[in-house]
Design a protein around this nucleic acid. Structure first.
Lengths: 145, 145
DNA sequence: GTTTGTGCAAATGTTTTGCACAGGC
DNA sequence: GCCTGTGCAAAACATTTGCACAAAC
């Protein structure tokens, strides 16, 4: 659906059927994650990445996720009972809102860090935290987005 | 590849090969959930329930989880990248702490509700929320529990 | 040359579903 | 009798891993 060279530098020399696109798929995945302004599931990432690099496999998505999480450049966002979603860690510290109507996840600003720190019981070393708000997003309440 | 009766003594009245334990397994599962004072994974629930009702199947665990979530008597606790954990909803409102060393999840008391309410952007209808703190638990820091 | 990243497919793990049947009504 | 809950097994879906080989160095 897109001629590779159109927007992917990827310097693809296009030699054999399957001899190409051997350049860092990771960069493709990173771009997808950077451009999304909300957490994505592995499947979301796969689909978006395949649009840019056809043939990219799900294994590469998972491997890249793990690599980036280890590096600390990606964070997992937990949504109860659902597949994990991931987003780049570079962003300003923030939290999420999930709409129970459309299941969409939105970034929200602000964080009562000081209040959360007080929650950690004695003896527990607090390193990070996550807040998820649930409710209904503007479109789903009938309001304009 | 095992003769059923060979090792399932388990107080099995042993009438027919599989004519027994036909009573509400759900009550067994509910008891397990009530007695646990922390969120459990479906596998945790299965093991604990099987100790009380041998032969109870994983499908029953999942079906009961769904039923109870629909009723609102069970809530899912989201831990990024891991299997969902569940706990009874009746408890006092609280949140969780997960140790990154042992992966254990602990209940913690207190909740800065008022501060969290302020986080919801205009137009978003806030219905509930969840806070997860991450760090290291006392045993894993070398301190006595 | 060696090392690394990748696609593919198989393996593993998790959750859901179809079905037959026991128990409660 | 009918309805519901259940065990079992298979299916569906999610995630990880082994392997061969191309690309990068």
């Amino acid at each position: 659906m897109d001629s590779d060279k159109s927007h992917i530098d990827e310097t693809t020399p296009r030699t054999h059927p399957r001899a190409r696109r051997r350049t860092r798929q990771r960069s493709v995945i990173q771009r997808v994650l950077l451009e999304a302004n909300r957490p994505l599931t592995p499947q979301d990432i796969l689909l978006a990445a395949q649009a840019r690099a056809p043939g990219l496999g799900i294994a590469t998505v998972y491997r890249t996720i793990h690599t980036m999480m280890t590096e600390g450049t990606l964070v997992a966002v937990g949504i109860p009972g659902e597949a994990a979603r991931y987003e780049t860690a570079g962003k300003e510290h923030h939290h999420h809102f999930q709409c129970r109507e459309c299941d969409g996840v939105f970034d929200i600003q602000g964080c009562p860090t000081d209040d959360l720190v007080k929650l950690a019981p004695k003896g527990f070393r607090l390193e990070s935290h996550q807040v998820v708000l649930y409710g209904v997003c503007p479109p789903c309440t009938g309001m304009p987005a």
